[in-house]
Simulated assay, not measured.
Amino acid sequence: MIRVLLADDEAMVRAGVGAILGSGGETEVVAEAGDGREAVELARAHRPDVALLDIRMPRLDGLAAAEEIVRTVPGTAVAMLTTFSERAYVARALGGGVTGFLLKSGDPYELIAGVRAVAGGAAFLSPKVARYVIEGLGGADGGGRLAREAEAQARVAVLSPREREVLGLVGAGLSNPEIAARLHLVEGTVKAYVSAVLDRLGVRNRVQAAIVAYEAGLVAAA
């Protein structure tokens, strides 16, 4: 069972997200917080597998809370609940160790899949969020996006075919065991491939690698 801390200042949102997570049969909401400071305190007390945080919360915003949880509760993966309008915060979240971006109004299956992915040590970008993340990081103009796509494709070109395949699955939100099953490899081999991909791309974590995968066209951002 995946143990989840859910933090949002709107009780209705917490109730809805909690109901969705509970319906999957794999997750249990062990604590709920209405602000960022409470989220940090509850993360330290409960040590959940995943902290699912709204970005905009009182007392301490979700990004600051995420940074604090990553720093003080290393066994807890952090994912952000986001809206299209909040993609400007993504760069800071990436730097703070966040490994998932889930859309509040997205498909319930994506929410469940995203929590499962980050709990398993993978990165997860809700596909619609991924598209807006790429646009936000690359600038609104088409030339900026094309430049980033070309840069990503050049970076991916140094990878072997197998490494590109692994990168695409990282971008799709698969964990190492899931990649191993998909490619019929042992998990240790997949771990080595992922480490090599991160190193060769010059990125620090799986979320940054996932963004490169989207920009290079290895994953469809619907």
Rank of each mutant, 00 (worst) to 15 (best):
I2S: 09
R3A: 08
R3C: 07
V4T: 06
D9Y: 08
D9F: 07
A11I: 13
A11R: 14
M12I: 15
V13C: 10
A15C: 06
G16N: 11
G16L: 04
V17D: 04
G18M: 00
G24M: 01
E28P: 10
G34A: 02
E38T: 11
E41N: 12
A45L: 13
R47K: 15
D49K: 01
V50F: 02
V50L: 09
A51D: 07
L52R: 03
D54V: 03
I55E: 03
P58E: 08
L60T: 08
L60K: 10
A64N: 05
A65L: 10
A66M: 11
A66W: 02
I69G: 09
V70W: 01
V70F: 05
T72P: 11
V78Q: 02
R87A: 08
A91D: 13
A91K: 07
R92N: 04
G95M: 04
G95N: 10
V98C: 08
G100W: 01
G100Q: 06
L103W: 01
K104Q: 06
G106F: 00
G106Q: 02
G106M: 02
D107K: 08
D107F: 04
D107R: 07
L111A: 09
I112E: 07
I112Q: 05
A113I: 04
A113T: 09
G114T: 04
R116A: 09
R116D: 07
A117P: 13
V118H: 00
V118N: 01
A123Y: 05
S126E: 14
K128M: 12
R131S: 06
V133N: 00
V133E: 03
G136W: 01
G136A: 15
G139K: 03
G142K: 09
G144W: 00
R148G: 12
E149R: 13
A150M: 07
Q153A: 13
A154P: 10
V156H: 04
A157K: 06
L159Y: 05
L159W: 10
L159Q: 06
P161G: 11
R162S: 12
E163L: 05
E163Q: 14
R164F: 00
L167K: 02
R182D: 06
L183S: 05
H184L: 14
V186N: 14
E187K: 12
G188T: 13
T189P: 03
A192D: 14
Y193C: 03
S195D: 14
D199R: 15
R200D: 03
L201D: 08
G202I: 01
V203E: 11
R206S: 11
R206H: 14
A210F: 09
I211S: 04
V212W: 09
A213D: 11
E215P: 12
A216F: 08
G217S: 10
G217V: 05
A221L: 12
A221P: 14
A222F: 07
